[in-house]
């Protein structure tokens, strides 16, 4: 029976529900980093090609988000943070999410390859595969290192942007990838320390649950140390410059200071002041990544005016 009375309030999705399926907040980071990768490259595409490249990279990111929501619908329904998502709340059917994810994956990969080059399309396909299959289906529920390895999926967009413009992978693209890849663990573990999450109920092995908060604090410190050389090295490549290097030195010193404070803090002290330092470091880590990519743009602008290049 197709009578309209047979639909309840949550049975039919609105357009916005499908947009939510694509994780628009994650997409904004993808758009920004892919755009920077594209703009700092030595080869310049036509504006329409550039627009298409960023659009289809973002669409590919959104598609992998939809596939992730389809696969994780069972654990999303358990956790407070995610139970309002379109599938667990019943607004979008799992089959719809899978169909949208697969369709947008195909469209974004083929269109990126046609608009720019085949290598960029292949990298986007690998990114979607990595996030949907390697991270969501395999790592997320099996190892506390899920954040570390899964972070690669979020690190690909600037590399794809670069490849879309130049047609090849170079040291600059690899270092932009490494910057986000190494930044992801301390960023998420700082969040995990102050978010009293219900990952345990959902049986997701987060480091805070499997190894305890003291070990997680140590991990934040050591992974921040590992991040610093990659961030600074980018400053000595063809896309680096004085603005990037100065910005990076200041930001890395501050990130190290924050990570050190997290490591040396006692859990009781942190709980007493409402995880003040952890929250500060988490917010700062967002600024850290944003400012690094803005500095790359600033140096690219200076180079175009024949100022400040190495």
């Amino acid at each position: 029976m197709t009578d309209i009375r047979s639909f309840d309030d949550t049975g039919e999705a609105q357009f916005g529900d499908y947009v939510q399926l694509l994780k628009p907040r994650v997409m904004s980071l993808v758009v920004f980093t892919a755009l920077v990768g594209l703009l700092v490259a030595p080869v310049h595409l036509h504006p329409v090609e550039s627009f298409c490249a960023v659009l289809f990279i973002a669409l590919g990111g959104g598609a992998s988000g939809a596939l992730n929501m389809w696969w994780d619908a069972d654990i999303d329904a358990i956790m407070r943070r995610t139970k309002g998502r379109p599938i667990p709340s019943g607004r979008v059917q799992p089959g719809e999410a899978l169909a949208i994810g697969l369709a947008l994956s195909g469209i974004s990969v083929v269109m990126l390859a046609l608009a720019t080059n085949v290598l960029a399309g292949a990298l986007l396909a690998f990114t979607i595969f990595f996030y949907a299959v390697v991270y969501s289906m395999w790592l997320k529920r099996s190892t506390p290192q899920n954040i570390v390895i899964g972070g690669a999926a979020g690190a690909f967009p600037p590399m794809i942007g670069w490849v879309a413009a130049t047609g090849h992978v170079s040291v600059e693209a690899v270092l932009m990838f490494m910057l986000i890849f190494m930044w992801t663990p301390p960023h998420f573990w700082a969040l995990a320390l102050f978010m009293k999450s219900d990952y345990g109920d959902a049986k997701v092995p987060m480091l805070t649950e499997t190894h305890g908060r003291k070990v997680t604090r140590a991990h934040v410190w050591w992974y921040t140390i590992a991040l610093v050389p990659f961030a600074l090295a980018l400053g000595f490549t063809s896309i680096g410059g004085p603005v990037y290097l100065a910005t990076s030195v200041v930001l890395n010193l501050e990130f190290l200071r924050g990570a050190w404070r997290i490591w040396r803090r006692d859990e009781a002290v942190a709980e007493a002041d409402g995880y003040k330092v952890e929250k500060q470091v988490f917010k700062f880590s967002l600024l850290y990544l944003f400012a690094h990519f803005c500095a790359l743009l600033a140096d690219a602008a200076l180079r175009s005016w024949h100022l400040g290049a190495w």
């Binding site: 309209i4 039919e12 609105q14 357009f15």
Partner: peptide, 22 residues
């Protein structure tokens, strides 16, 4: 339900038109 469907259909229609233009 008709209003929801209208909003969804208009959204999809606009997206398709934008895709064709692009």
């Amino acid at each position: 339900i008709h209003r929801r469907r209208l909003g969804r259909n208009v959204g999809v229609g606009l997206l398709l038109a934008a895709f064709v233009a692009l």
